[in-house]
């Protein structure tokens, strides 16, 4: 009997500890960071600056939520930065160079993104390339190459207002791009926690073979995952174009790394099956707050990179501790 009660206590305690780390580790990090920066710079905690952070985090936040899906399936998508570039360059050609309606431009932008994502999914599941690292490394180069080729490396500027709306406008003091981020994150939260496909994504990442033997069409889910990741790259591109009223072929260069960093800082496991939408948002915000804060403190960009590196390693180390803890118990 005493054993039973002990067991119960043990799980309750383990549960709270694990819960604490996995759900709030990143949030606590963000809060500490905010407090420290507020002390160090009187310009940090102002409405203006908070809105800056919201806007600056939005491109990475959109890429990161797309990236969360492949990472949940124990995969990766290295191509999102390049997909962003090819999406906005084609949008530029359609809506600026060819003068077609901005609605067509937006559809083209999202469709090109989703299309390259679909290509990633098909390469992985139909050609059976051994790991998405390889298939997406391939498309990363293909998409970037095409982005440079289609306008002979020239940038495109002068987009219509409708296309610029998401990245440029404000609702009151709040940037539309951040409203979009919140909207998208809510959709993803429902998608991942409450739909069958969403739950299957976790199952595949947790144990692909068990998922397959539980009647899940693994290939179909993986194709969806990479298509959505590509679609989010297209959407992030749309926001970027609005922000700078310009599309250029080197846009989004190495953005995949920031997106991966946000997902990992947000508590997702590289081994798949573990990770949340809100953790990812916090991950993206931590990166944006760090950049912004260090910027306000006039810390050089080189040093910023080093700090973000430390944060990634610390975040993953916490994850390792958690895993070690749970395996022992």
């Amino acid at each position: 009997m005493s054993e039973a009660t002990m067991e119960k206590q043990k799980t309750a305690r383990d549960h709270s500890w694990k819960w604490f780390l996995s759900k709030f580790g990143a949030l606590i990090g963000l809060i500490i960071l905010t407090v420290v920066l507020t002390f160090m710079s009187d310009k940090f905690l102002t409405v203006n600056n908070i809105m800056n952070i919201a806007r600056q985090s939005s491109i990475n936040a959109l890429l990161a939520i797309g990236m969360l899906l492949p990472i949940l399936t124990a995969g990766i998508d290295l191509s999102v930065g390049s997909i962003l570039a090819i999406s906005i360059m084609t949008m530029g050609i359609v809506s600026v160079n060819m003068g077609m309606s901005p609605v067509v431009g937006i559809i083209v932008c999202l469709a090109v993104g989703a299309g390259f994502g679909l290509l990633n999914g098909l390469l992985l599941t139909k050609l059976r390339l051994p790991h998405p690292f390889i298939s997406t490394l391939g498309t990363m180069n293909i998409a970037r190459g095409l982005a440079l080729i289609i306008t002979a490396a020239a940038p495109i500027a002068g987009f219509p207002y409708l296309i610029q709306y998401l990245g440029r406008e404000f609702v009151g003091p709040i940037p539309v791009s951040f409203v979009l981020v919140i909207f998208v994150y809510i959709i993803f939260h429902i998608f991942l926690t409450r739909t069958q496909t969403g739950r299957y994504i976790y199952a595949i990442g947790g144990n692909r073979e068990a998922a397959h033997l539980s009647g899940i069409n693994v290939d179909r889910i993986l194709i969806i995952v990479y298509t959505v990741s590509g679609l989010m790259a297209g959407l992030a591109g749309l926001v970027m174009v609005g922000r700078v009223n310009s599309a250029f072929p080197l846009a989004g260069l190495s953005y995949e790394l920031d997106a991966i960093a946000a997902v990992i800082i947000g508590g997702a496991s590289f081994f798949g099956g573990v990770g949340t939408v809100w953790g990812t948002l916090i991950g993206a915000l931590i990166i944006a707050v760090l950049r912004n804060g260090l910027n306000l403190l006039n810390v050089s960009a080189d040093f910023q990179m080093a700090v973000i590196g430390i944060v990634i390693i610390a975040a993953v180390y916490v994850d390792v501790l958690r895993q070690r803890n749970s395996k022992k118990g």
């Binding site: 409450r194 739909t195 739950r199 199952a203 947790g206 144990n207 539980s214 573990v274």
Partner: peptide, 27 residues
């Protein structure tokens, strides 16, 4: 057989997720 890092209820429902969908197609 198992998703080791997922809770028991998810493991149990995994092979018949359809059964748990409500009218809005949500789990």
């Amino acid at each position: 057989g198992l998703l080791l890092d997922q809770p028991l209820d998810f493991n149990i429902a995994l092979a018949n997720m359809k059964m748990f969908r409500n009218s809005m197609q949500l789990v």
